[in-house]
Amino acid sequence: MNRPFKIPESVLVVIYTEQLDVLLIERTDKAGYWQSVTGSKDTLDEPLAETARREVGEETGILVSDEISVSPTAANRVPCDHLLDWQLSNVYEIYPVWRHRYAPGVTRNTEHVFGLLVPHGIPVTLAPREHTRYQWLPYREAADQCFSPSNAEAILQLPQYISAGPDRSQ
Rank of each mutant, 00 (worst) to 15 (best):
S40F: 07
S40Q: 14
K41D: 04
D42H: 08
L44N: 15
L44E: 13
L48K: 03
L48C: 07
L48S: 04
A52S: 05
R54C: 03
E55D: 02
V56M: 01
G57A: 12
G57V: 04
G57Q: 13
G61H: 00
L63I: 03
V64A: 00
V64Q: 00
E67V: 11
E67W: 03
S69A: 11
T73I: 13
T73N: 08
A75Q: 12
A75S: 11
R77K: 10
R77L: 00
V78M: 08
P79W: 02
P79L: 03
C80K: 14
D81N: 14
H82F: 09
L83V: 00
S89W: 06
V91C: 13
Y92A: 10
I94M: 07
P96N: 05
Y102K: 08
A103E: 04
A103V: 05
G105P: 12
V106S: 07
R108V: 07
E111I: 11
E111M: 14
E111S: 15
H112D: 04
G115T: 15
L116C: 09
V118D: 02
P123N: 03
V124G: 05
T125A: 15
T125C: 12
T125F: 14
T125I: 12
R129E: 09
W136N: 06
W136Y: 13
R140C: 11
E141T: 06
E141V: 05
A143H: 01
A143D: 00
A143M: 02
Q145D: 05
C146V: 01
F147Q: 13
F147W: 05
S148M: 10
S150M: 11
S150F: 12
N151I: 13
E153T: 05
I155A: 06
Q157S: 08
L158P: 12
Y161N: 12
Y161S: 10
Y161P: 04
S163G: 15
G165V: 11
D167Q: 11
R168A: 09
R168F: 05
